[in-house]
Amino acid sequence: MKDSAFSSIILIFEEYYRISENIRKCSTRSSYTVENFHRYEEDLWIEVAKCLDGKDLIRLAVTNRWFYRLIMEDSIWKYACLRDMQVLSPHHVSFKWFQLYASAFDGSHAYCFRQKEKHIDWMRIGAFFIETPSAVLTEKLALPSKLMELEEDHNRAIQLSGACILTDIRTGIWIADLQLVRCPVCNLNTCEGTMQILDVRHLELFLEESFRNGSWQFEDIGSHRIEKQSNSASGGVFDYKHIHSPCTAGLLNTSGWLADPGDWQPRARISTHAVAVNTNLQPNDGLHVRFQAMRSKGSDGKVVSIRISQQLI
């Protein structure tokens, strides 16, 4: 909501309060009273808060102590977070929703924390929900016919089909970004170009101390080389439970969202339980594709971030 709209709401309630006070003072014969009207009516302001974005919520919170106490209620930030990310509500979160909202909308991405010198540009795709601890990772926007075989050997599955099924994933809200970085992040010494990365992470990742201090690192799942002309660089992450759902079918039906030939701008699409990207490529000798995952340490050991990177050979 714009500043002018926010100011208008404040003025409306100020004027309503002023008029009500005048009625109370001047209309001694009137049966109408405003004794029960309160300027700081909590239920009313909660409804107002639901119309505000994060910045306006903060502006309202610093008005006075009463508004600060009201606006910092976790339920308000949960509503704002789910509304602005357009995702389902998780059963449990480990941090306050105010922190989660800030982490999602403060403009930060994975390369803000490490390898800053390698980063060129990025694009926020959006948020999606992983309901089950298994997901299909693919470099193609067409899934293999025999999905169950992808679970056995990740590296072999990636080399044969360009896809794998990753298990032990932390369920909940995930955020997807498209990153453009400089090589040799990929450890190929012969490359002098750039690399496209579909970078997805659990909503809570940036708040985890073990991530921030560098204890959690990416590990290779598998990789392979496509040693022929590649017309595009694609990637996708799909919640395994919803792999055949209509929302996933919309991502795999690429006729409606891929760029036309000769259009080099990246395209991305997100649904309730999946995300996919595609970028048209100029003439080339092929691609090196790499799949990576970051796991939390300790008893949890869940996957908290996934990357599918593609680099021109």
Results as ranks from 00 to 15, higher is better:
residue 1 M to G: 10
residue 2 K to N: 14
residue 5 A to Y: 02
residue 8 S to F: 01
residue 11 L to V: 08
residue 15 E to S: 00
residue 16 Y to H: 10
residue 19 I to T: 12
residue 22 N to I: 12
residue 39 R to A: 02
residue 41 E to I: 02
residue 42 E to L: 15
residue 42 E to Y: 13
residue 45 W to F: 02
residue 48 V to F: 11
residue 48 V to I: 10
residue 49 A to V: 04
residue 52 L to S: 08
residue 55 K to A: 15
residue 56 D to T: 14
residue 57 L to K: 10
residue 58 I to T: 11
residue 61 A to N: 10
residue 66 W to E: 11
residue 69 R to H: 15
residue 71 I to F: 08
residue 74 D to K: 00
residue 80 A to F: 05
residue 83 R to D: 03
residue 89 S to H: 01
residue 89 S to P: 03
residue 91 H to V: 14
residue 93 V to A: 13
residue 99 Q to E: 07
residue 106 D to I: 02
residue 107 G to I: 03
residue 108 S to K: 15
residue 109 H to Q: 13
residue 112 C to R: 06
residue 120 I to P: 04
residue 120 I to K: 04
residue 125 I to N: 06
residue 133 P to S: 01
residue 136 V to R: 00
residue 139 E to P: 00
residue 140 K to T: 15
residue 149 E to T: 12
residue 158 I to Q: 07
residue 159 Q to Y: 06
residue 161 S to W: 01
residue 164 C to D: 04
residue 164 C to N: 06
residue 165 I to T: 03
residue 172 G to N: 04
residue 175 I to H: 00
residue 177 D to H: 14
residue 181 V to Q: 06
residue 181 V to T: 04
residue 196 Q to E: 14
residue 201 R to V: 00
residue 202 H to Q: 12
residue 204 E to S: 01
residue 204 E to C: 09
residue 211 F to A: 04
residue 215 S to L: 14
residue 215 S to M: 05
residue 218 F to H: 06
residue 222 G to F: 10
residue 226 I to A: 05
residue 232 S to Y: 11
residue 235 G to E: 02
residue 238 F to V: 14
residue 242 H to D: 08
residue 242 H to Q: 00
residue 244 H to L: 08
residue 245 S to R: 13
residue 258 L to C: 12
residue 262 G to Y: 07
residue 267 R to N: 07
residue 268 A to C: 09
residue 283 P to F: 04
residue 286 G to T: 03
residue 286 G to I: 01
residue 287 L to Q: 10
residue 313 I to Q: 00
